[in-house]
Amino acid sequence: MTVIILPGNITAAGISPDRWLDDYGDSLYRYALRKLGKTTDAEDMVQETLVAALQSRASYKGHASEKTWLTGILKHKIMNFIRIQVREKTVDDIGVLSDAAMENDAVSMFDTRGSWIYPPTDWGDPDKILHNHQFIDSFERCLKHLKPALAEVFSLKEIMGVSNQEICKKLDITMTNCSVMLYRARMGLRSCLETKWSDINNKEM
């Protein structure tokens, strides 16, 4: 392996950017890949993380282990990456949670007494569904149909595994808003999949 010795490699705190790549590159990569699912994206995230770490190494106090510190940076990079990706999909959404919007999408599945207008149906054996690429494709399409603000919250939660508290802080919304947005995202996805999946199922039968 070629080792390029970085000038000014070892700082007073004993931080060595070149060694980060050797010591933590692979584990950071695996972490990013688990979250993003795409090798090229994961590679980019590792690079951005190490560059950011290099630029802010003065702020590393050595309280946390290097690995923890770097993983923390990586986590932020991935969160921003997901946010930007979701944002880019559509720009026409204002993402404001109004009562009118609430009544519009997810909640219009219920009548005035709060009962189902179109009762959810059985999608079949979960193990089988998960191995059906048509179901995964439908899921992807439904996620894209979701309003960007909702898709963002859903992705942060279910893909990044970010806690509701962290999402609130990141997006500067209240806990209630966060719960309601997750609810709308889930119900929106559910009802979209219900339509798409039953179409596919009916064709196959």
Binding site: G37, L130, H133
Partner: peptide, 21 residues
């Protein structure tokens, strides 16, 4: 059924991310 579907969404998200690449 709704409760089953909501739970399935979480599993599907994980599955979806790993299948993309």
């Amino acid at each position: 059924q709704m409760a089953r579907q909501i739970k399935l969404l979480r599993v599907t998200s994980t599955k979806y991310m790993s299948s993309e690449d």
